[in-house]
Amino acid sequence: MTETTGTWLTQEAYDRLQAEYDELVNVKRAEIVKEIDERRQEGDLKENGGYHAARDEQAKMEARIEELRHKLANAHVGEVEFSGTIDAGTVVTAEVMGREMKFLVGSREIAEGTDLDVFSAQSPLGAALLGRTAGDETSYVAPNGKEITVKVLHAEPFGG
C-alpha cells in the first residue's frame, strides 16, 4: 500500500476521524446553522461581525468535513504488512545531515498521541525513502534546493 492510493490508518485513527466526522456532520453543522440564523436576525448584515464570523466558522467546518470524508473514503485500515522496506506506516530511524532522527512515514492522524514526527510519503524525505531498507543511503532535494543525504539506520512497522 502506498499513500498515493489512499491514506493508511490504524483502526484507532480511523475510529477517531470517523467520530470527529460524525460530530461535525450531526451536531456541529446544526449548531452553526442556528448561530448564523440568530446573527442574521440581528439586523444589517454588512455591519454584523458576529454573522460574518459564524459564516467563516461554517466555511472552515465544511472544509474539514470534506477533508475527513475524503480521508475516510480512501483510507486503508489495518496493520501494516512489513516486509522490511519503507512504506506508509513505517517508523524510520535515519541519519539526516549527520543527525539521527526517528519519524513515521505516513499521515499525522495515525501518529496522534505519540512523540513521532511525521513525513508523508509525498514529502521530499518520505518519497526518497519509499522502498528503501535499513542500511540504504539516498538523498533528496529540500525545498530550499539543497541536496540532503539520508542513511536508513532502522525501519519497523508503526505499532501505535
Results as ranks from 00 to 15, higher is better:
Arg29Lys: 15
Arg29Glu: 05
Ile32Ser: 06
Val33Ala: 08
Val33Cys: 02
Lys34Cys: 01
Lys34Phe: 03
Ile36Arg: 07
Asp37Thr: 02
Glu38Thr: 07
Glu38Arg: 15
Glu42Ala: 13
Gly43Ile: 01
Asp44Met: 02
Asp44Pro: 03
Asp44Ala: 02
Asp44Trp: 05
Asp44Arg: 07
Leu45Arg: 14
Lys46Ile: 00
Glu47Ala: 13
Gly49Pro: 13
Gly50Pro: 10
Gly50Arg: 10
His52Lys: 15
Ala54Gly: 04
Ala54Glu: 00
Arg55Glu: 11
Arg55Cys: 10
Asp56Pro: 08
Glu57Cys: 08
Glu57Leu: 15
Glu57Arg: 15
Met61Ile: 01
Met61Glu: 00
Glu62Pro: 06
Ile65Ser: 02
Arg69Gly: 11
Ala73Glu: 12
Ala73Ile: 11
Ala73Phe: 14
Asn74Glu: 13
Asn74Asp: 11
Ala75Tyr: 11
His76Lys: 09
His76Gln: 14
His76Tyr: 11
His76Cys: 08
Val77Leu: 15
Gly78Asn: 02
Gly78Gln: 04
Glu79Gln: 11
Val80Phe: 06
Val80Pro: 07
Glu81Met: 09
Phe82Thr: 00
Phe82Ile: 00
Ser83Trp: 08
Ser83Gln: 13
Ser83Tyr: 11
Ser83Ile: 08
Thr85Gln: 07
Ala88Tyr: 08
Gly89Ala: 02
